[in-house]
């Protein structure tokens, strides 16, 4: 039996209408097409990253899935419930975190804030205190001694943890996190990433995780959906995405002296040759699908021209390469 997805988006389109002001009364409506057809499926137990630059449409997507925004076209389902027509059922099954730094009352402590939202979310009074204590422990605020401090005194890392704690209050099957580590100090960011992975891999929850940080997506996510200018451009595991651009691995050869015969080198590796000179050292760089077939020839040319090879490295492509590749196409 095929697994059914816990989150599914089908051709989501969202246009924002804003007014451009000119003077007191003049103004014209401009339409920003934030999503131009976003589709994906997410299955239980996986962390899926929605990776894209600022303005790509990540937040818009998260808001639609969390019932906070109605799409102009397309559909989205959480555990089979329609996010537009069955919003109440969707809300019962999700936990959402929209920012790291906001979303709580300043004059209340972390615990009081969570108790407030627990009540609003329909937890019954006999379990509120217990559940709030649990989530405070899960996100490590208890360990930091911060549970009973005012929200306005929190560091950014604590605010992020409290936001995550709120998303977990109802112990939801689906967790939606919008850039949950944005601007955080490294220990807090690591804590959040570890927690998120644990939620999916240990507890079988479904996590949709947006970020514009490729390094982060690579280490947190089981699968990545690349999004740019409102369109999903590629999808796969981090490794698959790297393979997709056919692993243009980068070869770097550092030599002492001047090898000169660049024309010969170009003949071998193609036009993609890059030369950098620094402190009497020359670095020769090129990208190739199968560098092992070229390296021998390159070295022979260099050595026959009297170059003294200091260092040779072959680098795997990073997600950044993947991203530049797809963004360039889009």
């Amino acid at each position: 039996m095929p697994r059914s997805p816990s989150v599914e988006a089908i051709g989501l389109i969202k246009r924002y209408k804003t007014k451009e002001r000119k003077g007191l009364f003049k103004g014209r409506t401009i339409v920003i097409e934030a999503l131009k057809g976003v589709s994906f499926k997410i299955y239980p137990g996986e962390v899926v990253g929605l990776l894209g630059p600022n303005g790509a449409g990540k937040t818009t997507t998260i808001k639609i899935i969390s019932t906070l925004l109605i799409p102009d076209e397309g559909e989205a389902y959480v555990k089979g419930y329609d996010v537009v027509t069955e919003a109440d059922m969707v809300r019962k099954n999700i936990g959402v975190m929209l920012t790291v730094e906001k979303g709580f009352y300043n004059k209340l402590t972390g615990r009081e804030n969570l108790e407030y939202f627990a009540a609003l979310y329909g937890l019954s009074s006999n379990i509120i205190k217990k559940r709030v204590q649990e989530v405070l422990e899960i996100v490590g605020l208890e360990e930091l001694g911060a549970s009973d401090r005012l929200f306005e005194e929190y560091s950014l890392g604590m605010k992020a943890r409290l936001n995550l704690a709120r998303a977990l209050l109802r112990d939801p099957d689906v967790v939606l996190l919008d850039e949950p580590t944005l601007g955080l100090d490294p220990p807090s960011a690591r804590k959040i990433r570890d927690l998120v992975k644990g939620l999916a891999h240990r507890e079988g929850k479904t996590v949709l995780y947006t970020t514009h940080n490729m390094f982060e997506a690579e280490i947190v996510c089981d699968r990545i959906i690349l999004i740019n200018k409102g369109i999903t451009v590629a999808e796969g595991t981090p490794d698959e995405l790297k393979d997709k651009i056919m692993a243009f691995r980068t070869v770097k050869i550092m030599v002492k002296g001047e090898p000169y015969r660049y024309d010969k080198l170009k003949e071998i590796v193609g036009i993609d040759l890059e030369i950098r000179k620094e402190n009497g050292l020359t670095t020769i760089m090129f990208k190739a699908r199968k560098p092992e077939e070229l390296i021998g020839d390159v070295i022979r040319v260099l050595v026959s021209n009297g170059a003294d090879i200091v260092k040779l490295t072959v680098e795997e492509p990073t997600l950044e390469d993947v991203f530049v590749y797809y963004s360039g196409k889009g």
């Binding site: 808001k63 969390s66 019932t67 906070l68 109440d88 809300r91 019962k92 959402v96 929209l98 920012t99 906001k102 979303g103 709580f104 009352y105 300043n106 939202f117 609003l120 979310y121 329909g122 709120r166």
Partner: peptide, 18 residues
């Protein structure tokens, strides 16, 4: 301003009661 509005909108609490 507090950024709490989206979380309140997403709550199932009956509005008159709230």
């Amino acid at each position: 301003w507090a950024g709490t509005l989206p979380y309140i909108l997403a709550s199932p609490a009956p509005r008159v009661l709230r």
